[in-house]
Write a protein that binds this DNA or RNA. Structure first.
Lengths: 239, 239
DNA sequence: TAGTATTGTAGTCAAATATACTATAAGTTA
DNA sequence: TAACTTATAGTATATTTGACTACAATACTA
């Protein structure tokens, strides 16, 4: 690991405390068949070869951290527009075995049904894991993952971000199952319907789901514009 | 700004993208006479001489980010135990005029009445500002400050952290005024009393305030142990 | 084609909570 | 002692939540 560096102007070696290696690591959440999933990658080389971890990368000199995260995700998944939010920085001096590396954790929510996320992966393998399938990850990635889940559980109740895990068009039951899974709670169907419809946040698409072996449910979509108008009027999303 | 560095093993100059200068900046909140305040420092030297900004410092090679933040605050204020939480990392490539510096923002809540916070400041001057007194700060510190205020407003409603801004012993009116100030809302006295007392979170100290020119109010304190017991039973703090 | 299973959707009712008040007590100050 | 300020108790109404019942619509299957 790098420990000394050169000051460009003076040419002298500068104290090592100023500089740090810094990376991005991203928790990519998906939702499939009622289960919350996370996308992990297998490391193809280096000391952690064969182990699984969060997808990540370096921050370039001329890009913002958010841009770096977007770029890394775009390279990995091919998806341009996804929900992406910074979690926090993780910087235990021993988190990376070969030296001091600070990482900035992000989490992303993607509409798994609408994309083939693994398209962008090349050398290393990538795989979806349900939360209880996740075992030992490299470095402190288990900590980052559990922190992000905790964070997601808070955020999902305060802001309408859960929709980013569902297809563009969804049924009320799908949202409810999403909340049940993410928050690990049981919800009452009629009560949940009433609560979410009363917000007047969802657009009734006047369509019904197809190819289901039961009575087809109405399809809705989430409209960010409507949400903005509501919040401007003082509306506060809460589940 | 430093742009190249040496790999210790090979002795070669390594690509510059890997390393970054990284700092801590801390928003220190206080509460005095019904007003939320923030502690700013005047820069005594360098390109930002004479300007005001958030207190900050470098992260050392062998300390965690949290420890760095604690150390920086301890050096500045002399206070060991204060409420300190990481906000997020700020990394716009242009945020620092002389080169790429990523900063990790923290915010702290201190019991202003119980300490003389400015004791630790030496060279540079330090001063408390109410939120509306804050003008142009250096770099992106206005952004960090406004982000931290937004974050505080969310957190203060979800967790009993507001008490960290009050003296050890406080009255119900003091808490209420704190919430009114931080959240910028009006509250009803009897209703607020009932709500907070019903939580059974506060310890009645069987004491009354002194030297007040009106009927003295009962004093209470916040007990983290009680809060822990309540949360273990499923209690959820919410204002 | 009748029956059964599954999910969607509407409605009811009591309990809990929030909100807007009024009233009074206990002090301080003039 | 009167006027004033703040603490504290209480009340009445609206709103929300939670548990539950009922029934409609559709698909499958015997």
């Amino acid at each position: 690991m790098v420990k000394k560096f050169i000051d460009e102007e003076s040419g002298k070696v500068v104290e090592e405390k100023v500089m740090n290696a810094i990376t991005i690591d991203c928790v990519i959440f998906g939702f499939d068949q009622g289960k919350l999933e996370v996308l992990l990658v297998e490391h193809g080389s280096g000391i952690s070869k064969g182990k699984w971890g969060l997808p990540g990368g370096w921050i370039k000199e001329d890009e913002s951290i958010d841009n770096a995260a977007h770029r890394v995700l775009q390279e990995l998944t091919g998806i341009e527009d996804l929900y992406l939010e910074q979690l926090k920085a993780f910087g235990d001096p021993k988190r990376f075995p070969l030296g001091r590396v600070i990482t900035i954790g992000y989490y992303a929510l993607i509409k798994k049904a609408d994309y083939d996320v693994k398209a962008g992966f090349t050398a290393s393998d990538a795989k979806w894991y349900t939360m209880d399938q996740v075992k030992d990850l490299i470095y402190d990635h288990n900590e980052i993952l559990s922190y992000s889940l905790k964070h997601l559980r808070n955020r999902v109740r305060q802001a309408p971000i859960g929709f980013n895990l569902l297809p563009e068009k969804f049924t009320l039951l799908q949202i409810m199952q999403l909340y049940q899974e993410v928050l690990n709670i049981e919800l009452d169907k009629p009560n949940f319907r009433r609560k979410i419809l009363k917000m007047k946040l969802l657009v009734d698409l006047k369509e019904k789901e197809k190819n289901v072996s039961h009575r087809a449910a109405k399809l809705y979509k989430f409209d960010p514009e409507i949400y903005k108008q509501l919040t401007d009027k003082g509306f506060n999303f809460e589940i």
